[in-house]
């Protein structure tokens, strides 16, 4: 009786053979019907991308340009299709963003172009594509990755948006600071039913959840940094815009609360080792608005200090905060019209837009820095649960 001895890894060449008629089954099982949760938790990050690339390598090895083309088209169209269907699910979008990037990195790492081979092992160099130059397809994949990134940002924004005003402005964690409520102000009724239930802690927990999902999916660290920067921009912009529209948010004690909240966000960045991703800098307008609520606003010296401090705020924003500023106790007073005029005169020569509100829809341009993998393709096993028994390891 023949003994079914498993082949040794060194005997494999890191390719997966498939029949042309199985291509649809491949993208169906691997992309359209895959449940990201199970895959992300149990298997190596980027496994679908590696499997697709190993199939592509086999088509390249056969020198079958039609097979290469149709596999790439089916892959890209399937990813677009799943994102159309589940585009509002952060996990799905994050999963396909990281896999699309990994697929793109593989196309570079194994392209045979020296610039992308610097970190390859000799064995990895043997696995470079041998017949086709897929540079144009890399461009298409990069365009796809940009689309998925924008979808991820929208998805994240939809989840975060309802928490921001409540967690950053309304909810008070510093006990006894505000003391007396500003006189003559009604408590603003909430437009979102459960708005009042969100706290800064809800925001921090949500940020951690986004972060842990992306890490689990093996998202490139450089890409995570860009997502976090965008998250912080949205938090800062939405908070500042609401502050600029609400008198009850423009008091000394709110300034204190905002500064505390910002320090907690910074602490979160430090905890995740993300201090250098540019996220903190996006909060600068909000930080300055909070400081503006707290500094003295009386003398010419105060005016000078404010003008040099608030360089991330527009004149319209500075003047608005000063106009809205509302004392909450007898030790504070309203800002005089004369003082506001002094500020306006001092800032007259600033070249800037008359913009009051920040544009919360801005998305920073994304880049996908090349991130080669040390994983040996020949060592990759295909778990039975993926239902890809029709692929043969070569």
């Amino acid at each position: 009786r023949p003994v079914n001895l498993p082949r040794k890894e060194k005997d494999f060449q890191g390719m997966l053979e498939y029949k042309k008629e199985d291509e649809l089954k491949l993208v169906k099982n691997l992309i359209l019907e895959l449940k990201p949760r199970g895959v992300a938790v149990n298997f190596i990050p980027g496994l679908p991308a590696y499997i697709l690339f190993m199939c592509l390598r086999h088509a390249d090895y056969l020198n079958d340009d039609q097979k290469v083309r149709t596999l790439l088209t089916s892959t890209i169209n399937s990813i677009k299709k799943i994102l159309k269907k589940r585009g509002d699910d952060f996990e799905t979008v994050s999963f396909w963003l990281s896999n699309t990037c990994r697929f793109l990195h593989c196309l570079k790492q194994y392209s045979g172009e020296e610039a992308f081979m610097k970190h390859n092992t000799p064995r990895q160099n043997e696995h470079c594509l041998s017949n086709f130059d897929l540079a144009e397809y890399r461009q298409v994949l990069s365009d796809l990755a940009i689309q998925i990134y924008q979808q991820l940002i929208k998805c994240m924004e939809n989840i975060l948006q309802p928490m921001i005003v409540s967690g950053m402005l309304e909810h008070e964690t510093i006990q006894g600071v505000s003391g007396v409520k500003p006189t003559g102000l009604r408590k603003r009724t909430s437009s979102i039913a459960d708005e009042g239930t969100y706290t800064l802690d809800s925001i921090l927990r949500q940020l951690s959840s986004f972060h842990s999902i992306m890490c689990q999916h093996g998202t490139d660290p450089e890409l995570i940094k860009q997502v976090v920067k965008q998250q912080f921009y949205i938090i800062g912009a939405v908070t500042l815009n609401n502050l600029l529209l609400r008198k009850d948010m423009c008091s000394w004690s709110k300034g204190m609360q905002i500064r505390y909240n910002v320090s907690q966000l910074e602490e979160w960045l430090r905890d995740k080792n993300l201090m250098n991703c540019g996220a903190k800098e996006t909060l600068e307008p909000l930080i300055q608005a909070a400081q503006l609520l707290q500094v003295k606003k009386k003398t010419d010296e105060d005016a000078e200090a404010i003008c040099s401090m608030c360089n991330a705020l527009t004149t319209a924003q500075i003047v608005k905060v000063l106009n809205l500023y509302t004392p909450v106790n007898e030790f504070e007073e309203r800002v005089s019209i004369m003082f506001i005029r002094t500020i306006q005169t001092r800032l007259r020569d600033r070249k800037e837009s008359p913009q009051l509100l920040m544009d919360t829809k801005i998305i920073y341009p994304v880049t996908f820095p090349f991130n080669p993998s040390s994983l040996a393709l020949e060592s990759i096993h295909i778990p039975g649960s993926l239902n890809l028994g029709f692929l043969t390891r070569v």
Partner: peptide
Amino acid sequence: RPPSRPRVLLKAPTLAEMEEMNIFEEEESP
């Protein structure tokens, strides 16, 4: 080591053009 033979550049359609080649057409039609 990269092979000495030059690779053949595969011309790619754009992302939008690719969508036209809907591989799922048959499956989706009633």
